[in-house]
Design a protein around this nucleic acid. Structure first.
Lengths: 227, 227, 227, 227
DNA sequence: AATGAATGAGTATTCATTCAT
DNA sequence: AATGAATGAATACTCATTCAT
């Protein structure tokens, strides 16, 4: 059996084991046995548990980003792009529950080498979403009420606040998506589209309002967006 | 030193250790040393690592629910209540990072005994939010267009779908909150209030729309909620 | 069984095992079994194979230096002191073959932490011998032909050369002693006194001649020391 | 690449690795990699780690004996011969530190197959030196006072004691040489000739005296050899 | 209320060695 | 003449847990 294939098998088994048991609880013995080879071969090809885990994270990370960005049409309206990306995201995590578990649950709880890789991926997604939101503000196809407002000027006017708003917002969106993905994996018969729809429903108006400068405030009841 | 006090010290140390290292990587040795007692005493009081972990989850779980519900005035408008609860949530997780880590990251990855406790807590919060949303539908101070719609009826009409919607929604909300909590902890000078505001802005309209039966759909551009 | 005693037992077993098998070939399992305890106890008390080995080296090193210096009378003539020290040295190594093997054979072949300790001890011995040789040069009881020569002046005259000569000489003496110790351990019925006598016979005249400025030279046949 | 050449490369790598790391710590992997071939080839040519080590010892052993005996002129005076041999010895060990390490440090600590080979070599050298000393007794150019004594007869008279004396003496000589070799390698600018000179100075008279039956004794101060 | 002494059962990692080609 | 693929057996080290006091 050629090395490349064996390595793939090993990574598959490792992703599965790490995803189910966690980094510490996963044993190299189990991984080797799942592949049907002896432990030394795993070490020969992948060097150490740590490197194996890192390799899993990297592979799953790249696969996820690839899946999400694959179907998106660059020219499309922002909400369309977001929709497509979300469906792809939920579809990928549904097909790859172990990989998703590795990224979402396991990788983040183990000090630096690992968390960094996930953070990198997460930042890529956040940046992508941030870009989308920014684009939304500038295009006619954005959420309804945005078109007739001078969003861009406002945006430029207090860029700092807006930047942080957008960052927080993107964090919230990605976090919501992550959480929904875990939920969708555990709940029977939740399709990627349904999960994506839930998130769009949940977040899209809020995004629009935010870009329009609408804010919910503590003191006064939320100032209505539509006079 | 009285037993109750010692037990509290032990749980403090355990929460801290479990939160930082994870269940598997945490060692009873470290916990005992942190308290400054010998290991047998820890076993005498708390029986086993597993029980200790379960106790930690229970305690932190209850503390979180208590913190979130503490400040809420039952009679207040729904958005006000949600706001108060979110601020309390972000404040508590910021002050209690280890406890939060135990609940959010560690507890869910270890077979039944543990995950169940967290699920229970999450359900309590979801039920609370669901109640708020239901109430919103019935009061005049809810998000704009909700009052003149027959939300409750709709909701009752197809309860199954709605239940799942609400569950997904709650997942999204909690996920967003979790993500924001992490972001707030990492980003300097983000106060609990700011995080809560971001989340309110992000989610409030979406919540209202959802309850109002408004949906973003793929085929047509989202039907505007407000003409 | 009190800890101190157990630790002593462990070190005894370790010295024996390291001495016989070498650092790498010695196994912690064997050491634990020799003591009649489980491996974890060895680790609990002595931390690691490396630290255990280092502790062995230190202990044996100190024991050897103590044995050698114990019987020496500071005021005695140099040859007498040397003789006493050598007998003690050979007696100690004969009673402690494993300890001597650890110091002489094992410690020196394993990179820094270990070799350093032995080097330190060796240097102490070399310095001691060097002192003796220096003293010899200044006292009337030195080897015969030294008394009527102006050794001290010569010594002061070309201090640099002399220093290096003495250093090399001490190295040779200690090396010879080490080698003889190993040989005495392997050969039946060689008493410490016999070994010491062999070395005295071998080296003493040479020492005397050297101090007297006599040199064997390549070009001319060795210039006779006694005209 | 012809087999003979490959074997030589392998032995070179092995000597180097064994010399630096020791028998146990040396790995066949490292040796193969150093040569730039695959492990199976090493096994094809040299069968096993044990045989490889034995082959190294044999080769280095023979090389050392050859080097030491090469320059010696059979007819020359004994001290001259010893001098030449010592210079060759120090030169060879200086140029061949790994080979010397294998012989001196590694070979002796591993059960029979290996130590025997080194013992054989050492015996060859001892016999050679013994021969030299015997010759010295018979020639006019020996150390001063030896010529007029009946050394040979004495020697024959109590052969047993003498044999052991000579053995011990050879041990001391070789030990001194070994120690000096190490010292010379560590100390800058100590040439083989200087090391050899130190040893000659140190030992030559002692050798002569020993053969002459002179002994240093404990009770009386050493009976002077030369009035 | 508290501990010093002790261990059974695992876990990652390494290495000499072989087989089929 | 040479190698890629593979492994049995060992080894250092850890950890939750108990017992006698």
């Amino acid at each position: 059996m050629p090395r490349a294939e064996r390595e793939r098998q090993m990574m598959d088994a490792a992703v599965r084991t790490f995803g189910q048991r966690g980094y510490r609880a996963a044993s190299m013995d189990e991984i080797a046995e799942l592949v049907g080879v002896s432990k030394p071969l795993v070490y020969l090809y992948l060097n150490s548990k740590e490197e194996l885990f890192a390799a899993c994270i990297r592979r799953e990370s790249e696969a996820l980003v690839a899946a999400v960005t694959a179907g998106v049409e660059p020219g499309a309206p922002a909400d369309r792009q977001l929709w497509t990306g979300l469906v792809a995201f939920f579809a990928h995590t549904a097909e790859n529950p172990h990989g998703w578990a590795v990224l979402h649950r396991q990788a983040r709880m183990h000090g630096e080498p690992f968390a960094a890789e996930v953070t990198k991926m997460r930042e890529a997604l956040v940046a992508y979403v941030t870009g989308l939101i920014g684009a939304t503000a500038r295009e006619a196809h954005g959420p309804p009420d945005l078109a007739d407002r001078d969003v861009v000027n406002r945006d430029l006017a207090d860029r700092d606040v807006a930047d942080r708003d957008v960052a927080g917002l993107a964090q919230a969106l990605v976090g919501a998506a992550e959480s929904l993905a875990a939920w969708a994996n555990e709940t029977p018969d939740v399709s990627p589209k349904e999960a994506a729809a839930t998130l769009m429903n949940f977040a899209w108006t809020g995004l629009g309002n935010l870009m329009a400068g609408e804010r919910w405030t503590e003191q006064e009841k939320r100032e209505t967006a539509h006079r």
